[in-house]
Design a protein around this nucleic acid. Structure first.
Length: 234
DNA sequence: AATTGAACCAACCGCTCGGAC
DNA sequence: TGTCCGAGCGGTTGGTTCAAT
């Protein structure tokens, strides 16, 4: 017998999310936090005909307020290459080094841009070795590079990495009455104090303001979070 | 202006992991 | 100890956008 589906798929919507769905999911999470993804769509209202898994993905990859939008810088690309050479395709681990970036975003960027860039430089994107070293050798003489992925054990990860993994997205918000508080100290708890301001501020806006300003116009939202960054790193 | 192919990226699928019982 | 289930992860797909012709 096969595995049970993660949710009852009959009657559930698939494909691109609408503004209304985003709005409803965002409001639900801001008001209730994240406890169990499976029940989120059930409690979020009748227009959210999505499975919990889909809600989780939408939140993590698109709606999360601490997401950093925009292209990757050269420095970020270099860091991704460096981390990939150590961690392999462990995108979530790699993403944990980039606050505000998602594993999906990094994975996509790797597959569409960095891979090509490396090939252009004559490097094998999988092994990070110069491609001639491998292709010029007969099969029997090839030296197999150890799989970096398998050489790193969970227990050997740094404390810093472990702490980053433990950031609880659901705890980033506090909704009190009609006010949403985005705790900067929570948002950036995975950044060392030396990198961030010691004077953490609570950035509060009203729920109505949030909805009117950021959830009705799909082109606007990310500016808000850019400004949030500016405020925090002053 | 229309067509076509490439590039990009959001979303889905299926598997693994880990906690609860 | 084994089973179940939710969450997380990585690979893949498919729709959209953009550039070239």
């Amino acid at each position: 017998m096969g595995r049970r589906p993660c949710c009852e798929k009959i009657g559930l919507k698939r494909g691109p999310w609408t503004i209304e769905e985003d709005h409803r999911l965002m409001n639900f999470i801001l008001n209730n936090g994240i406890h169990c993804w499976r029940i989120v769509p059930k409690l979020a209202g009748t227009c959210l005909l999505r499975c919990g898994k889909s809600c989780r993905l939408r939140w993590i990859n698109y709606l999360r307020p601490d997401l950093k939008r925009g292209g990757f810088t050269d420095a970020e690309e270099e860091r991704i290459m460096e981390l990939h050479s150590q961690l392999g395709n462990r995108w979530s681990k790699i993403a944990s080094h980039f606050p505000g970036r998602t594993d999906n975003e990094i994975k996509n960027h790797w597959n569409t841009k960095i891979k090509k860039k490396m090939k252009h430089l004559g490097l094998d994107p999988t092994t990070h070795e110069p491609m001639n070293n491998i292709t010029d050798q007969p099969e029997s003489n090839k030296i197999t590079k150890p799989n970096m992925c398998s050489t790193i054990k969970e227990g050997e990860e740094t404390k810093e990495q472990t702490l980053k993994d433990e950031v609880d997205i659901g705890s980033l918000f506090e909704v009190q009455g009609n006010e949403i508080s985005i705790s900067s100290s929570s948002l950036y708890s995975n950044i060392s104090r030396s990198e961030s301001s010691s004077n953490f501020a609570e950035d509060s806006i009203s729920l109505e303001q949030w909805e009117l300003t950021y959830m009705t116009d799909p082109l606007v939202p990310w500016d808000f979070f850019t400004n949030l960054d500016d405020n925090i790193f002053l």
